[in-house]
């Protein structure tokens, strides 16, 4: 059974349509890369899956169950976690408070009956950098720290699927490197990750399969080796 399955997704902003029949699938515990140039429709795809944009056409299934049209908070509770492209951490709140917003409230935590979920300890284990900054205002963190906080915040909700939107954007190479290892650990912990990226190499090192988006349409789908091997696609769309 597929963890996440998107079929024929069509999305428009007002009158201008942006996505035209996107279909993609991600299996459990796998990283799927969503590649494409700026403006191709990656962010729009992730937002639509998260329920943040109205869907014109198409379906979304989570663990085989239809979730199309559910509001974002339900999708979150069903196990989809979203890390937006510009991080959108809460600047005026401390690191701890940011994490608390993402955390499951006690009530729901026990109802879901998962004892092995994410908590402060485990998050700080993954992102040791954050543990020293707990009481700092999030607005004062560096770009890399904010990105980690954004991911950590989403993890606090114990997602099964993580929608990661360009996590490396604007980060220093050292940070990108650290992030790569951390995302790898997340996959090893069993999370399914849909990773939108412009840094193709970074994404392909992590992913097992990739979708290539161009002007709102999927122009290529295949395993990562397949993609690297396809000279024409690489030239035309990825410039690598």
């Amino acid at each position: 059974m597929m963890m996440l399955e998107v079929t024929n997704l069509e999305v428009a902003y007002g009158l201008s349509q942006v996505l035209f029949g996107i279909s993609l699938r991600a299996g459990s515990g796998e990283i799927v890369a969503l590649l494409g140039r700026n403006g191709a429709g990656k962010s729009t795809t992730l937002k639509a899956i998260m329920g943040l944009l109205p869907i014109r056409e198409g379906h979304i299934h989570l663990r085989g169950r239809e979730v199309t049209g559910q509001p974002p908070y339900i999708l979150n509770q069903l196990g989809i976690g979203y890390v937006p492209e510009d991080r959108r951490i809460f600047h005026g709140l401390t690191v701890r408070e940011n994490l608390l917003v993402g955390a499951l409230p006690e009530r729901r935590r026990s109802k879901r009956g998962r004892q092995d979920g994410w908590d402060f300890e485990r998050v700080f284990e993954l992102f040791p950098l954050l543990s020293g900054l707990v009481e700092r205002k999030a607005g004062t963190l560096s770009g890399g720290e904010q990105q980690m906080l954004s991911i950590a915040r989403t993890l606090m909700g114990n997602p099964d699927v993580l929608l990661l939107d360009e996590p490396t954007e604007g980060l220093a190479p050292k940070m990108v490197h650290a992030l790569e290892a951390q995302i790898g650990k997340l996959r090893d912990a069993g999370l399914t990750i849909l990773l939108s990226e412009q840094r193709v190499k970074f994404a392909l090192r992590l992913a097992s399969q990739a979708y290539l988006l161009e002007r709102g349409r999927i122009v290529f789908h295949g395993g990562t080796e397949e993609l690297m091997a396809n000279e024409a696609v690489r030239r035309a769309h990825l410039m690598v």
Partner: peptide, 24 residues
């Protein structure tokens, strides 16, 4: 309180708060 923290977070970015599982 958790409620207060949610309110402050929502004052800044309410869409993000719903994406984090809060019933808007």
């Amino acid at each position: 309180t958790r409620w207060g923290i949610l309110v402050r977070a929502a004052t800044q970015d309410r869409e993000m708060v719903t994406a984090l599982g809060v019933n808007q």
